[in-house]
Simulated scan of single mutants.
Amino acid sequence: MTTSREWEFAGTRGAVTARIWAGGEPRYVAVLVHGYGEHLGRYDHVADVLVRHGAVVCGPDHMGHGRSAGERVLIEDFEDVVADLHTLVESARGDHPGLPVVMIGHSMGGLIATRYAQLHGGLLTALVLSGPVLGNWHVAEQLLPLDEMPDVPIDTATLSRDPSVGKAYTEDPLVWHGPFKKTTVRALDTAMRRIGEHGSLGALPTLYVHGEDDRLVPPDATRVGIEAVRGEDLTERIYPGARHEVFNETNRDEVLTDVTGFIERQLPK
């Protein structure tokens, strides 16, 4: 397994911890954008596959997540998270001038990556979205009218058909196991609306992957968001029976092969 190293940079709301995985001479930069309540340390196996494919892989723990500063899972405006991501991308481009940049976002990270592509798509060679929070998300719709956020633990069986994934998630001290923050839910809703209003990703090659049995971010709801932003080059894979974390699913090898195959087709020959 490829080992990672950490570093810090000044984010919009405090210090942001980032990771990098590298090996050999890279052909491209892959930027990983993690989801709500988790951290980039859960993506070691994804980074390993990408490094073996020829990438130098990097990404941040978002503000209030993982090892980064800030009140846990509190995000007031996702434009701040996008700005932090841009700082990281610019740093990676400075370290690896001329290399293509591919962004891979999961769940809430898919929302962040989509917004990044809308604002800075000219810097990207390709975009990969995994179960992205786009369109109409039932969790936001249910929580926004409430005065107090319910403290109901996630059913980890919804993450993957592999029970070891849920066990590791439960035991991970860097994963947030408490309730949503109302401010964050409001910011998520605002970001989804902003993305839908902004519209198409244009000519940016985009791979959209989703588990057919994703109950946390149902594909039917995401479909609205995908149709709002889809550009001229969209590839789509819906995996039968798969749940929310397709990179951690029982068919993860198939999913990651689809991802690297898509990236390969976008790289300069």
Rank of each mutant, 00 (worst) to 15 (best):
L234S: 06
A187K: 00
R194P: 07
G199C: 02
D213K: 11
H210A: 13
G225P: 13
T184H: 04
M192N: 02
M192F: 03
H198K: 15
A228L: 10
H177C: 09
R215I: 07
T206Q: 01
Y208G: 03
A228F: 08
H198C: 13
H210G: 08
T222E: 10
E227S: 09
M192C: 07
V229Q: 12
H177N: 12
A191W: 07
L216C: 13
D189C: 00
V224M: 09
I195W: 01
T183D: 10
I226Y: 09
L201F: 05
L204G: 02
E236P: 09
L234C: 08
V224H: 05
P219A: 11
L216A: 14
A187Q: 05
A191L: 04
V209M: 06
A221W: 12
T190C: 05
E236Q: 05
R186A: 08
E212C: 03
A187M: 02
R193W: 07
H210I: 12
P205F: 01
A203K: 04
L201K: 04
L207I: 03
V224R: 02
A187I: 04
D214K: 11
P218Q: 06
G202V: 00
F180A: 06
P219R: 12
L207C: 12
P205E: 03
D233W: 08
E236K: 04
G211W: 11
Y208D: 02
T235Y: 03
R223W: 12
L204R: 01
V217Q: 05
P179A: 13
R223C: 11
R230W: 00
T190V: 02
R194D: 14
G211T: 13
I226K: 08
A228R: 03
G211A: 12
V229D: 15
D220C: 09
G178T: 11
F180R: 06
P205K: 04
Y208W: 08
L201E: 00
E227A: 13
V229L: 11
V185Q: 03
I226F: 11
V217F: 06
D233L: 10
L204D: 01
P219N: 09
P218N: 05
D189P: 00
R215F: 08
D214F: 01
L207G: 10
T206A: 03
L216E: 13
H198P: 08
K182C: 01
D213M: 02
V217T: 06
D213A: 00
L207P: 14
A191S: 11
M192H: 02
I226V: 10
W176H: 14
H177M: 09
R194T: 15
E212N: 06
E197K: 15
R186G: 06
A203G: 02
P219E: 11
A187T: 00
P179N: 10
G178E: 14
L216N: 15
L188M: 10
